[in-house]
């Protein structure tokens, strides 16, 4: 089970630098050209899938990350 502190920190409740800046970590992101680990993901119908399943279906797959806000 994920740690609730981690969940709370990630899902910060207000847009203030001390809460959002810790997540701006693009400089620490994986390099291109190297395999990445798999992660569980969920479809909107609540069925499960995974990152690897999704990104190996096509010659190339665009993955945009974001949210409503």
């Amino acid at each position: 089970m994920p740690d609730h502190t981690e969940i709370d920190l990630y899902n910060y409740d207000e847009f203030v630098p001390e809460k959002f800046e810790r997540w701006m970590r693009f400089d620490d992101s994986p390099p291109v050209g190297k395999l990445v680990p798999d992660f569980p993901l969920w479809n909107l119908d609540r069925s499960t899938t995974s990152l690897k399943t999704e990104i190996t279906k096509h010659a190339y797959t665009i993955v945009e990350f974001g949210s409503f806000t």
């Binding site: 994920p2 990630y10 899902n11 970590r25 693009f26 994986p30 395999l35 569980p40 990350f65």
Partner: peptide
């Protein structure tokens, strides 16, 4: 996941884009 495991692994920027090839490698 609710803890953002995938998002955090890739740098957790609010609106970023990656492209992967069929081998699952980011290009």
């Amino acid at each position: 996941a609710l803890n953002g495991a995938c998002h955090r692994h890739f740098g957790s920027m609010p609106n970023m884009t990656w492209i992967f090839n069929r081998s699952g490698i980011p290009v």
